[in-house]
Design a protein around this nucleic acid. Sequence first.
DNA 1: CAGTCATTCAATCATTTTATTGAATAAGAT
DNA 2: ATCTTATTCAATAAAATGATTGAATGACTG
Lengths: 222, 222
Amino acid sequence: MSTRNPKLALFAQFAAVAKSLAHAHRLELLEQLAQGERSVEVLADRTRLSIANASQHLQHMRRAGLVANRREGKFVYYRLIDDSILDLMAALRRIAERNVAEVERVIRSYFHNRDSLEPISRAELLQRSRTGEVTILDVRPEDEFALGHLPGAVNMPLRELEKRLAEFDPAQEIVAYCRGPYCVLSYEAVAVLRARGFKARRLEDGLPEWRAAGLPVVTDAA
Amino acid sequence: MSTRNPKLALFAQFAAVAKSLAHAHRLELLEQLAQGERSVEVLADRTRLSIANASQHLQHMRRAGLVANRREGKFVYYRLIDDSILDLMAALRRIAERNVAEVERVIRSYFHNRDSLEPISRAELLQRSRTGEVTILDVRPEDEFALGHLPGAVNMPLRELEKRLAEFDPAQEIVAYCRGPYCVLSYEAVAVLRARGFKARRLEDGLPEWRAAGLPVVTDAA
DNA sequence: CAGTCATTCAATCATTTTATTGAATAAGAT
DNA sequence: ATCTTATTCAATAAAATGATTGAATGACTG
């Protein structure tokens, strides 16, 4: 850890932080953590990792100072150390998106034509929701919704969406959001809604970014 | 490269970008590149890597979209793809600085007491330099100075500093800068100047950040 | 206190990454 | 053309990292 050259030692520290980001599974864990605190078990389940493996990745990130944990009874809950982690991930994403051709290919093949899913900005949504012009749709699972959601949002996990289309006002535009810029749920929700003739768009990014922008978040009382 | 799960594939791309940052030598190369274009030979020399090794690290970063290169005659010149790389490095540094105790230790042991070297902000320097109150001192090597420096700056590489102290006006405060927040040169310059009774401070960060902030940079005609 | 559950630890194996070496290219220079 | 110089490539050896397994820990429950 301690090199003879102090500048190199310093860069080695920065590299250690970068290294703990430099793994698909760990980024996935961070995406989950961006929603809020989670136990190891839940994280392992959502990312389809074994418990032991998830635990090790989480500890790795803890040592690097990306996440923190606390024990409560039998469970250990992990959380992001603070919102600067979101900044770091956003900077990473910006570069990956801009520069790596492969990313574009993946985005395109998965999200079909991304352009037709132009998102609405946070500022615009905030303004239009004040005048009651839009229906805000949160397509995340119920437990994530309960932990925090946009004011006035309706929670309808993707699986229920098709059954509950009657609840929407066909005259209003629907803005769907989910976990973040690469959460699939809201893309799929918009696709379903449009197929049924609704006017629907995605919100740019997702809840963690909304919260990080200092905008209001509603938490259900426990 | 292509996982069955598209979200994971996407994260794997982001991870690839992070991975190419996650190495002390590569961060060092990037710090050099933040100054401007450099040939492989110069980069290898400055970072004390073998040519082949430097070349491989540079190619790795090129594949990840962090740097670009061009051939001119016998030389291959590398450069940062754009300033978003500086943002990424800054985000990394912020987290490493805040969260990793080891970094503090390294900074302290190397820079002694950092607090006594409180830097001056870019805004303040800009303002005070307009009224001619300060001497701006660039302590980088001459070739880097020639490629771009702050308006009105005097170039005096560290080695020459002690011999040329007579050139300074003892009544004026001296603001030293160099390559960036972890470039050692300006710290040392301030230490030397203060020991000789001059009023001296560092500029926050360094030239790449000054340039990235959209502030004026002077290039010597070739 | 024994039992159960969530998490971590330790050991192992497989995989990936890094540095080094010497040969291969590519572009002037003689 | 041949020589020289700058860079890249290819092969190898050394080191680090990741996943899996089963045992160990810590904390609640009956």
